[in-house]
């Protein structure tokens, strides 16, 4: 079947088997390997991408179900060489060690801040509770997201206001 998914603003049209999962479509068809493929059981959350702005586990979503929708992956966070404040926060506060959970963590953080620009530590921990950092570096991840809340205007919003 043919699917048509807009990934980071770019239309991707491919012939696929209906059983193809979104995570494999993003990595193997669109060639965007920033989205990681982890537990394959919707437990670890490293495969989180945004579908129409909402974080979703792409290992438990069919590419076919996403046809006609907008997907944002970690590659879509930076705009024209300017990092999203969440990415900047992860750099400033050492929000990653091995980096495996980072793309999913950052996208969930972006969606959280879009809804709630000033989340408490508890709200941040709740938002990322479906995602596992195998280095157990949660304190730094929470600090990174707080850094973004305190220091950042999202690139997309800056673009929209100018």
């Amino acid at each position: 079947m043919q699917v048509n998914i807009v990934i980071n603003g770019q239309e991707v049209t491919e012939e696929i088997e209906p059983r193809m999962l979104l995570v494999h479509f993003i990595r193997d068809q669109a060639g965007l390997t920033g989205t990681h493929w982890g537990c394959d059981t919707s437990n670890c959350g490293t495969c989180v991408v945004l579908i129409d702005g909402e974080p979703v586990k792409s290992c438990t979503t069919l590419a076919a179900m996403t046809s006609g929708h907008q997907v944002t992956t970690v590659e879509g966070m930076e705009v024209d060489g300017v990092l999203d404040p969440v990415q900047e926060g992860f750099m400033q506060c050492h929000g990653l060690q091995c980096g495996f959970c980072t793309p999913g963590m950052m996208l969930t953080a972006r969606a959280l801040l879009d809804q709630n620009p000033d989340p408490s530590e508890h709200e941040i921990r709740e938002a990322i509770s479906g995602q596992i950092c195998r280095c157990t570096g949660y304190s730094s991840i929470v600090r990174s997201i707080r850094w973004a809340a305190e220091n950042g205007t999202p690139v997309s919003l800056e673009g929209a206001s100018s």
């Binding site: 919707s42 959350g45 989180v48 909402e54 974080p55 979703v56 586990k57 438990t60 979503t61 969930t108 709740e126 938002a127 509770s129 479906g130 995602q131």
Partner: peptide
């Protein structure tokens, strides 16, 4: 029930 990301779907 589940986690916030799963609850989106």
């Amino acid at each position: 029930i589940a986690d916030p990301v799963v609850r989106n779907r």
